[in-house]
């Protein structure tokens, strides 16, 4: 069936840890072309790590799209 846009615009299996999650990964949207125009860029994403189910990874550091990337030297990253 048609899945016209990538599953998550924020988390990619090529770049990010396999444990990183946010709500958008579970909700399938179609983009509203008006969105960008009206709202500018802003980020309200709440991330969590599936190892802890919290916004902090098992190492106690934040879990988000900026930190949970390949080559970050975090032992918890997969």
């Amino acid at each position: 069936m048609a899945h016209p846009v990538p599953e998550s615009r924020l988390v990619s299996p090529d770049v990010h840890c396999a444990h990183l999650r946010h709500k958008g990964m579970y909700v399938l949207t179609t983009p509203d072309p008006g969105e960008q125009k009206h709202a500018g860029t802003w980020d309200a994403t709440a991330y969590w790590c599936t190892q802890t189910q919290k916004a902090m990874g098992p190492d106690g550091s934040a879990a988000n799209a900026a930190c949970c990337v390949a080559g970050n030297g975090r032992g918890c990253c997969h």
């Binding site: 009206h38 709202a39 500018g40 802003w42 980020d43 309200a44 994403t45 709440a46 991330y47 916004a55 902090m56 934040a62 988000n64």
Partner: peptide, 23 residues
């Protein structure tokens, strides 16, 4: 604040057209 280590973004300005803006 979104609490411990979480973001707090929101759209601003909302809907109306300000031809010149900085945020």
């Amino acid at each position: 604040t979104g609490g411990a280590g979480a973001s707090s973004g929101f759209p601003l300005p909302y809907i109306y057209t300000f031809p010149n803006r900085r945020r």
